[in-house]
Nucleic acid binder design. Sequence first.
RNA 1: GCAUGCGUAGCUCAGCUGGAUAGAGCAUCGGUCUUCGAAACCGAGGGUCGUUGGUUCGAAUCCAACCGCGUGCGCCA
Length: 625
Amino acid sequence: MSQTHARTSRPDDLASQLEAGFRTAIIAALAECTSVAAAQIDPLIKAAANPIFGDFQANFAMSLAKTLGKNPREVAQMVIDCAPASLLELCDPFEIAGPGFVNIRLRPETIATALAQMDNPSLGVSNANHTHTVAVDLCGVNVAKQMHVGHLRATIIGDTIARLFERLGWRVHRQNHLGDWGLPIAMTLAALRRAKVDIARVTLDDLNAAYRNAQAQGRDDEAGLAAAHATGVGAHRIAELEAQHEGAAAAIADAHDTLRRLQSGERGVVADWQKLIDVTMHEVYETAQVLGVDLKPEHNRGESFFRDRLAPTVDAFVKANLAVRDAGALVVRFDGRERPLLIQKSDGTSLYATTDLAAARYRVQDLGAELVVYCVDARQRDHFKDVFDAVKLIGWTVRPDHSQASLVHVPFGAVLGADKRPLKTRSGENFTLKALLDEAIARGRREVHARAASPDAPTASLSPSELDAIGRAVGIAAIKYADLSSDVGRDYVFDLDRMVSFEGDTGPYAQYAHARLAGILAKATALGATSGAIVIATPQERALALNLLRYGSAIEDAAAQLAPNRIAAFIFELANTFNAFYQACPVLRGSDEATRASRLHLCDLTRKVLADALSIMAIEAPSRM
RNA sequence: GCAUGCGUAGCUCAGCUGGAUAGAGCAUCGGUCUUCGAAACCGAGGGUCGUUGGUUCGAAUCCAACCGCGUGCGCCA
């Protein structure tokens, strides 16, 4: 993922101030040189590679020296000599190091001032983006199918990206692209009706079984039949395959009939179909709630929602001469690519690509999204590449205000078992999401109860039900953090033992730091201690402060790159620097009044930022655990 | 076969879009609890960044080729 999808700027940000200052200095230093392009004046301000080099570094000198034909260290000195007062007053004297790096160390007062500025509800994250609109395709469950681990990813990655943009003030449309229409549903429905199942009291497990049976019945083993004839196997086997063949044909015919009746709006069939959706979604909403994911009926924009837009979609491509007949089907072809996009089958019905085209148009032209994010399995890379290209060809990326929208697939990898194969149960079935979450919650609870059993534990006084609630939060945090903390595009090995060890770079580690902070703040309130002006005195305070100041840009980067792991990385760094601070800097004890007030203020701000960052991933931040 | 993604420490992964001595977590080893929560902190060992070329003042990062693994490839979604 290397593209930038959304960019916001914050002129009040410290790094931006440094950048502006150096930009001015570079322009002044180059006043007599006319041969330098405007692009060359980017000061290239970065966080310092190592704290021993300071807080920030400017890397402009090396490349600039190249075009000027001068020594990089000389160029750096020239620029420093032209630094405006507004820049100089922020920093200690600059150092030129190595080949020409400019090391920047902020004055403690600069840090304190910047912290005071971010200590408001925004916490340094710009949220003035109300004119921007994004649509996020997430979850994407199939009706009559149990949710499995793949849906975990589509759901929580999508929710996190949605929350990220909400945090930045964007208008966000969550789009749950349900598989709730078409032949697969009709097959399940037909199978249930054939079996005379009472659809009024059916459970999701029943539906799941019916779905799988229907799929199995419909599987036409023509190839196997041909092979049996060719290789001369026993008549019994051939008869078996022929029966299967006929059974499949009958089941498919029944499904087609059911689909036709559903499409024509036959009352009983539609009611049964609606019931299947209700049963499925009931559990989806329940799971979403367990995960803290904001997913409700109003977010449903499934295949059935687009059913009346399919024919117009196909027509539009035909009229635009973008779709051609090929072996009876309609396909869209692309330059420089062999693979076409199929938008209509030879029997005249449409398929999933058709729905995706209609949905893309809806999101851009009806919802007005300038960015449409698809949180879908990486195996659908080619599919979305084709769909997006088709949408561009026909011009449906043009928004109501005539600007161009961009469509982006955020492909996520598979969840693997210890054997590096897609995660399965011992009996070889897909892990249901529910089973996974139940296990994580059980482990979280066990751990929280075990620690509360110690009489001097801060949680010792809590009731079993309170501990249960915390244990649940811890277990869910472990799963979500593990999923969201590495590059979502990669496969990862699901190892509950590792995630729920609660040590190191985990969700519970962040929660623990938060609980420690909450503990200090509660104790301070009880003691009547108040927070006051921040004074940066120790290396640990400086490190913590600098991390807090990076919050805004961390969140904006995460959004620009559509990379939830950037949020997790920020959270881990913050928790980490806080724990080091906690170890080295007594807050309530052994410090004078002013130091205590300053450190309390630092703790308060850290707790707020940590809780805010966790809330973007919808991970709970308990005050005790 | 074509396309596409990925190869970084024993294991699991970062690496902020080309910058200084490649960083974490787990595991291993050694230190920290009569003082704010030890789910923590401090320290040590551990790497030809798949291989070979190329571009560049400078490459894990960009380009090419090769090796290995994964995934996808017209009437399923």
